[in-house]
């Protein structure tokens, strides 16, 4: 019996704020493939972005914590900190 392929999911990150400059390619839209299941923190680890650089995520208009596990194919808004005042 052959090895079972690991499930992979594709998530699109839409990065809000100028923290996007620390995301791959300094882009505000980043497509990521990660082993499933993976929460927002796992995804950030996978692309080399410090977890603390992200305040929260938004899925389908609902604010989510960084332990949120997005579905395969989901678009997630990633909110980085604004500089106050």
């Amino acid at each position: 019996m052959g090895a079972v392929a690991k499930a992979v999911k594709k998530v699109t990150l839409l990065v809000h704020g100028h923290g996007s400059e620390f995301f791959p390619g300094k882009k505000s839209r980043v497509e990521v493939e990660v082993p499933a299941p993976a929460c927002v923190n796992d995804i950030l680890d996978a692309i080399g972005v410090n977890r603390s650089l992200v305040m929260f995520a938004v899925s389908n208009g609902v604010r989510q914590g960084k332990d949120y596990v997005p579905l395969d194919g989901e678009e997630l808004i990633i909110v980085t900190p604004p500089s106050g005042g």
Partner: peptide, 23 residues
């Protein structure tokens, strides 16, 4: 059209308060 545009306006600069404490 920028991602999260709707997330910025409701709180303005006050929106960073939680994060600054968390770091």
């Amino acid at each position: 059209s920028l991602p999260g545009f709707k997330e910025w306006t409701p709180y303005g600069t006050a929106g960073v308060t939680d994060w600054v404490n968390e770091v």
